[in-house]
Design a protein around this nucleic acid. Structure first.
Length: 305
DNA sequence: ACATATTCCTGGGGGC
DNA sequence: TGCCCCCAGGAATATG
């Protein structure tokens, strides 16, 4: 599931692969649904002959800069992949868009579930930009405790998990990193925003920033689908503390990780570490057998099963 | 207006 | 072994 660290890894690997400076010779749309704006024909016509000037990112959106200020917006959603391929590489099924480049390579877009897709915009301010992009909240690295307090005041009854998943509150988080951040912050995913203390909000902001930085250092999380701009998987799945670990021991306290449904999403948490609703009494009481933590450089924790 | 549920889509896994 | 059903979830849309 490409979230911020995965999309940023794609961005970096596309740049490292030399995408910037290439000219698109031709765009082929095999499945018109993948082009959300404009029509598939106008999309192909608009890209043909145009130079790629850079690759940026906002939240989970990739922003491929083009000559004359045009922007190719890509969203990978669940299963989308965007990568640089040799033109003679095997054509994988579910490849919906192929851009032929002037160096003989191709930028390919593949998406089994077809949730992902492209918008081709005349410029960064084009009102045809996807609504989600126009309404995006701050980047997590810019998120402040003040921002989170303000969002919590606006949505007092929403669960903290629901708020963190809302791209208008903070950009780039998805199901994996919300669960991971709340475990690190020792906050129960069902806690309402109004119930969180200032201390808990601060812990959430720090945990979000920490987990995203570590995931990025590990080139993202791959279960099945995620691949970077060169086709390589990430490694952060080795370091997840709760996501998809139902029944396995908590890496902090040993209690079995539990799963429930919050904000419509499968939600993993430690019932022992995350009793807290953020109030000082509950965070104090949830302190347990905190063993010596693994040395935590920014790039690795400890791979464990 | 706000909060939650449904929808889209397909492959994989569980149950029988 | 095979088939059916359900599950996974980001963001748009529908419903309460």
């Amino acid at each position: 599931m490409p979230e911020l660290p995965e999309v940023e890894t794609v961005r970096r690997t596309l740049l490292e692969g030399g995408l910037a400076g290439r000219t698109i010779r031709r765009a082929t749309v095999a499945h018109a649904d993948a082009v959300r704006y404009p029509s598939a024909d106008a999309f192909a016509a608009g890209l043909a002959g145009r130079e790629i000037t850079g690759v940026g990112r906002r939240g989970k959106y990739l922003l491929i800069g083009l000559a004359d200020g045009m922007v190719l917006v890509a969203h990978l959603r669940m299963t989308g992949r965007l990568w640089l391929s040799d033109a003679d590489a095997e054509a994988l099924p579910h490849t919906h868009v192929v851009l032929d480049l002037d160096d003989g390579r191709q930028l390919r877009f593949r998406d089994v579930r077809r949730f992902g897709g492209f918008h081709l915009l005349a410029d960064a301010g084009d009102s045809a930009a996807p609504q989600g992009l126009r309404e995006l909240g701050p980047e997590p690295q810019d998120l402040t405790a003040r921002d989170l307090a303000s969002a919590c005041r606006r949505h007092p009854k929403v669960s903290i998990k629901g708020l963190l998943l809302d791209q208008r509150a903070v950009a780039g988080l998805g199901n994996i990193y919300v669960d991971e951040a709340l475990h690190r912050a020792r906050v129960h995913p069902l806690s309402t925003c109004a119930s969180l203390s200032a201390k808990a909000r601060g812990a959430v902001v720090r945990a979000v920033q920490e987990v995203l930085a570590e995931a990025l250092a590990n080139r993202g999380t791959t279960f099945l689908d995620f691949r970077d701009g060169t086709g390589e998987p990430g490694a952060f799945q080795e370091f997840l503390r709760v996501y998809r670990r139902e029944g396995l021991p908590c890496r902090t306290c040993g209690a079995p990780i539990a799963k429930l449904r919050v904000a419509g999403r499968g939600t993993h948490y430690c019932p022992t570490c995350q009793k807290g609703d953020g109030s000082p009494s509950s965070t104090a009481r949830s302190r347990t057998t905190t063993r010596s933590r693994p040395a935590r450089t920014s790039s690795a924790s400890r791979p464990a099963r």
